[in-house]
Design a protein around this nucleic acid. Structure first.
Length: 444
RNA sequence: CGGGGCGUAGCGCAGUCUGGUAGCGCACCUGGUUUGGGACCAGGGGGUCGCAAGUUCGAAUCUUGCCGCCCCGACCA
């Protein structure tokens, strides 16, 4: 992409209503624009990162055996009356009346709808297990939206729903998501710690929040420090096999949010391993048994020739919130530092003197070759002065900057800057392009 | 919803107390000089001061109502 043709409205100054660094940087880097309290437009740069994050979530869901579909944003109130949640959900649900005076709502979640779909088609225990997900915009009319995309009213969520024959089978589905989430967040450069969460009226031990530690997090958390650095299972996990040991390895160590915190248990953690911090909830997994299948009659015939309600779980990832979490984890005073896996462009090419023949030629050549290599470079071909180009490149956080100007070219030199470390390497244009194309500067 | 704060040019703000022809920096446009880490000079455009009503000879400024946004609290991916 040529910057001259792109839409990248960067701000030099920090908008006054942004309180936390991720919100400030998303506004300054021209990623989002607030349209109303807690409601944002995703500008091109933000959209690109959002899609990358979404794709990682999707790939890991698919790997874990979940099947993608798409449900609508608008739902019928009748569906929610079946589960009893229409009255329970309260003011957080945005209720809408259509022209025929039908009561509709903008979905805050999809348990009812997926249960309705499941029960319409699945009648036998032989149809189980099933695991379906979608990535769709949700609306929750939060009392107080804040911190940009961290607590928006409209937000993009991945929600998965599992259907199993009994609690033991549901536990395996739960473990699939538990492990999938560990891998998902690690791929984005996040250290997410699973923490015991409140299971509400269902009880049991099957609910975990996945928390990214960050000073600006909304939750106070307490955990064994080893959990933070624990290596994730990785891509070659056998999701059909026994995942319980992987789960136990983590749940054996203390980790809880404020609501679930037990000071006495925490005190048993070795003192030098006790970690109390703040965190951002990026995922939440939940087993809720027959809470919806019972009232909504999602029954399957078992071998005993009787109908039984299916055991369900739901598993959410705040996709749009993840962008905030990633920036909180990866930034400096100059701007964002995107992990390569979610960077909006693979590299930036900075033409320090657009209009100079030598610089233009070298930049065009690098742009063509890096594009061909699949790096999806952003070529700053504007007439702006070098200082502004450096500042913009740092602000939007591209992992690599290929800096090309007439002064260096006289000695056949260009500069490669690594955003995360700030280090620069001088070399010939050919070397720079080749090494960038082959990922020579990557640290994985 | 309770408590607090703020709405003045695209962004950041001053002016409001004490009413008297709407300002500053950045950004933008034109010309010129510049050009390797957010240049300089000169000129220029842009605001019914959130909306409405009221007080007044006169309102960004005082009064009332409404709207929007932000922060603290209880809830959530």
């Amino acid at each position: 992409m040529r910057l001259s043709r792109y839409f990248l409205p960067v701000l030099k100054e920090t908008p006054s209503d942004a309180q936390i660094v991720s919100h400030q940087l998303m506004l300054r880097a021209g990623m989002i624009r607030q349209q109303s309290a807690g409601i944002y437009s995703w500008l091109p740069l933000g959209m690109k990162v959002l899609k990358k994050v979404e794709q990682i979530v999707r790939e890991e869901q698919n790997r874990a055996g979940a099947v993608e579909m798409l449900m609508p944003t608008i739902q019928s109130a009748d569906l929610w009356r079946e589960s009893g949640r229409y009255d329970d959900y309260g003011q957080e649900m945005l209720r809408i009346t259509d022209r025929h005076e039908r009561e509709m709502l903008f979905g805050p979640t999809n348990e009812e709808m997926i249960t309705e779909i499941f029960r319409s088609y699945c009648r036998s225990y032989k149809d189980l297990p099933k695991m379906l997900y979608h990535i769709q915009w949700k609306f929750r009319d939060e009392i107080r939206p804040r911190f940009g995309v961290m607590r928006g009213r409209e937000f993009l969520m991945k929600d998965t729903y599992s259907f199993d024959i009994d609690e033991a089978a549901a536990r395996h589905s739960y473990n699939r998501m538990f492990v999938a989430y560990l891998n998902t967040f690690a791929r984005m450069g996040l250290k997410a710690v699973p923490m015991r969460a409140d299971t509400g009226p269902i009880g049991g031990d099957l609910s975990h929040e996945f928390i990214v530690l960050a000073e600006t997090g909304e939750s106070e958390v307490f955990c064994h420090a080893d959990l933070v650095e624990m290596a994730v299972p990785g891509a070659d996990v056998d999701f059909e096999g026994d995942l319980q040991p992987l789960v136990d390895q983590r749940t054996a160590l203390y980790a809880a949010t404020e609501e679930m915190h037990d000071a006495d248990e925490f005190a048993k953690v070795p003192a030098d391993r006790q970690l109390s911090a703040r965190g951002i909830e990026v995922g939440h997994i939940f087993y809720f048994g027959t809470k919806y299948s019972e009232p909504m009659k999602a029954m399957v015939m078992h071998q005993d020739q009787k109908e039984h309600a299916v055991h369900m779980g739901s598993y959410g990832v705040g996709v749009s919130r993840l962008l905030g979490a990633i920036i909180e984890a990866h930034h400096d005073d100059k701007g964002c530092i995107w992990p390569e896996s979610v960077a909006p462009f693979g590299a930036g090419i900075l033409n320090l003197r657009a209009g100079d023949d030598a610089a233009d030629t070298a930049c065009e050549d690098a742009y063509a070759k890096l594009s061909a290599a699949g790096l999806d470079p952003l070529y700053d071909d504007t007439k702006e002065r070098p200082g502004g180009k450096f500042a913009t490149a740092d602000l939007i956080g591209l992992p690599y900057q290929l800096v090309i100007g007439p002064r260096g070219l006289k000695e056949n030199k260009v500069e490669v800057k690594i955003r995360r470390s700030g280090e620069t390497h001088e070399m010939s244009p050919e070397d720079a392009v080749n090494r960038l194309a082959e990922g020579a500067f990557s640290n994985g």
